[in-house]
């Protein structure tokens, strides 16, 4: 039982990619003296699902955080929709309609599910709040049931759904997800990946997905990048990367 039937239509559709939405060129990020990213080039086009896979400590999360401005890239440029965002503050970047679901979900545990979703909509000043709420509730019916419950009382899968729903409340042009499958049961992972595929297919949402679960991520994504030790070593269509022996050897052998 894999997610393949639901996702096949996306990965193999051969659709026309749009214009570049997010472009990282030569991005280098440091933590003090330690260089975490060694000149990264990544491009995400409108309407695409692009995934970044790699082992622990390869710099996946750092890449995502760097796009968001914390930490800031020391060298290189990050362009979003034709605008240089390399030196912007995180909250300014968020206001350009880039939504992020950070690693570890990071929902607000003492606030209710409803309040969590409200926080997601505060960027666009609650314009079309009710409409968006209906939309995410339709996507994740579980959240509607638990709307008045505290975020901290949800199960791990529900918290991940809440994190994605919260990110969607701002009507993002680019959705960045950091390891949405972390610590979740395979069935829940599939559910979440199905929703991402659906969002992309029906609403043309652009998704940048950072994942350790290389099999699922590459199945889902149009294109993928493989990150090793802070540098991109391979890039290509999702299915193509999935077929490569070195990818299989490094990230897929021993089950998924």
């Amino acid at each position: 039982m894999s997610a393949a039937p639901a996702l096949a239509g996306v990965a193999g559709s051969g659709r026309q990619p749009g214009k570049p939405l997010l472009t990282l060129s030569g991005v280098e990020t440091f933590y003090g003296k330690i260089q975490a990213l060694k000149g990264i080039d990544i491009e995400v086009r409108e309407g695409e699902i692009v995934t970044l896979i790699g082992a622990n400590g390869a710099g996946k999360s750092t890449t995502m955080m760097t796009v968001f401005g914390a930490p800031r890239a020391r060298r290189g440029t990050i362009i979003f929709d034709g605008r240089d965002i390399t030196r912007l503050e995180p909250h300014q970047i968020a206001r350009l309609q880039i939504a992020q679901s950070p690693e570890g979900r990071r929902i607000f545990p003492r606030m209710t599910v409803y309040e969590n979703l409200q926080m997601g909509a505060s960027i666009n000043n609650f314009a079309h709040f009710d409409e968006d709420l209906e939309r995410v509730f339709a996507m994740f019916p579980r959240l509607r049931e638990r709307a008045q419950q505290r975020g901290g009382t949800l199960s791990g899968g529900e918290q991940q759904m809440l994190a994605i729903a919260r990110a969607l409340m701002s009507r993002p042009r680019l959705l960045m997800l950091d390891e949405p499958s972390l610590g979740l049961a395979p069935l829940v992972v599939r559910q979440i990946f199905d929703v991402i595929a659906e969002l992309n297919r029906t609403q043309g949402l652009t998704v940048f997905l950072v994942e350790q679960n290389a099999f699922h991520a590459l199945k889902l994504a149009h294109r993928g990048y493989v990150l090793v030790n802070g540098a991109v070593t391979m890039a290509g269509a999702g299915a193509e990367l999935l077929a490569r022996p070195e990818v299989r050897a490094a990230y897929l052998e021993g089950g998924h």
């Binding site: 914390a70 909250h91 968020a94 929902i107 545990p109 003492r110 606030m111 926080m119 997601g120």
Partner: peptide, 24 residues
């Protein structure tokens, strides 16, 4: 009001706040 909710969100999780566009 938004500022009060931002305070509470800040208490809960600062990183999440930043990624939601809150000026911490």
């Amino acid at each position: 009001m938004p500022i009060g909710r931002a305070w509470e969100a800040l208490r809960e999780d600062e990183i999440a706040c930043r990624s939601l566009g809150i000026n911490t």
